[in-house]
Measured scan of single mutants.
Amino acid sequence: NITNLCPFDEVFNATRFASVYAWNRKRISNCVADYSVLYNLAPFFTFKCYGVSPTKLNDLCFTNVYADSFVIRGDEVRQIAPGQTGNIADYNYKLPDDFTGCVIAWNSNKLDSKVSGNYNYLYRLFRKSNLKPFERDISTEIYQAGNKPCNGVAGFNCYFPLRSYSFRPTYGVGHQPYRVVVLSFELLHAPATVCGPKKST
């Protein structure tokens, strides 16, 4: 009989979030998941669920729940959905087409922007091929755009693959930082360890 609440607040209220290319994953298990708490945590810009209804979450049980978190800019949030393409979905964080879970995003301009520009958040701009779903690539190998090998040196047709967002508070919403948490629900042929409040007794 599990009584402890799932530590969603640790994920959502973390002081620092990860850069999207090096997104963070927390496995959540053996706890009571009260998803209604999430609705009250922040004024969400996005709370979209796929393959599951957000209002039914509190009635369900899962084997595992994974919470992935990272920062992107406002106009990239739409890429965090099944079947999307674009720089983020292709080279940084890719959801599977049959994704079961929820994408939660909110504006973090007050936390993640600086007047002089916050350069701490990076994204991958160049990659030889698209990522597979939930693949994480943290390599910093020089990207070869031409025929000549780069031998690890940046220059003509040889690019450092990561680029930094420079978040400034005066930017338009599309270029402001957004914190994203992706909850993916895993149903294996194994005992369910993460249940809503109704199912945990």
Rank of each mutant, 00 (worst) to 15 (best):
T3N: 11
C6R: 05
F8I: 08
D9V: 11
N13K: 10
R16G: 11
R16W: 13
V20M: 00
Y21M: 05
A22H: 10
A22G: 08
A33H: 08
A33R: 07
D34F: 06
Y35C: 07
N40G: 11
N40K: 14
L41T: 12
P43A: 10
F44K: 15
F44N: 14
F45S: 15
F47S: 09
P54N: 10
K56A: 12
C61S: 07
N64D: 11
A67N: 00
F70M: 05
F70A: 01
V77Q: 05
G83T: 06
G83Q: 09
T85Q: 13
T85E: 07
T85M: 09
N87L: 15
I88R: 02
I88W: 01
A89K: 03
A89M: 05
A89I: 04
Y91H: 07
Y93F: 06
Y93C: 00
D97I: 13
D98V: 08
D98Y: 09
F99Q: 01
T100E: 08
G101L: 03
G101I: 02
C102I: 06
V103N: 01
I104W: 13
N107L: 02
N107S: 05
S108F: 01
D112N: 02
D112R: 03
D112L: 04
K114P: 03
S116H: 12
Y119N: 14
Y119C: 06
N120I: 07
Y121K: 07
R124A: 00
R124W: 01
R124I: 00
L125I: 10
L125K: 04
L125R: 05
S129N: 14
S129C: 09
N130P: 15
N130S: 15
L131Q: 02
S139A: 10
S139F: 05
T140R: 12
E141R: 10
G146C: 02
K148P: 05
P149D: 13
G152E: 10
G152I: 05
V153R: 14
V153S: 15
G155L: 03
F156R: 07
N157D: 04
N157Y: 02
C158S: 02
F160C: 07
F160V: 14
P161A: 06
L162H: 03
R163Q: 15
S166P: 03
G174E: 06
P177F: 02
P177R: 02
Y178S: 06
V182N: 00
E186L: 06
E186T: 11
L187S: 15
L188M: 14
L188N: 15
A190N: 13
P191N: 14
P191K: 14
T193Q: 13
V194R: 12
G196E: 11
K198C: 11
K198M: 14
T201F: 15
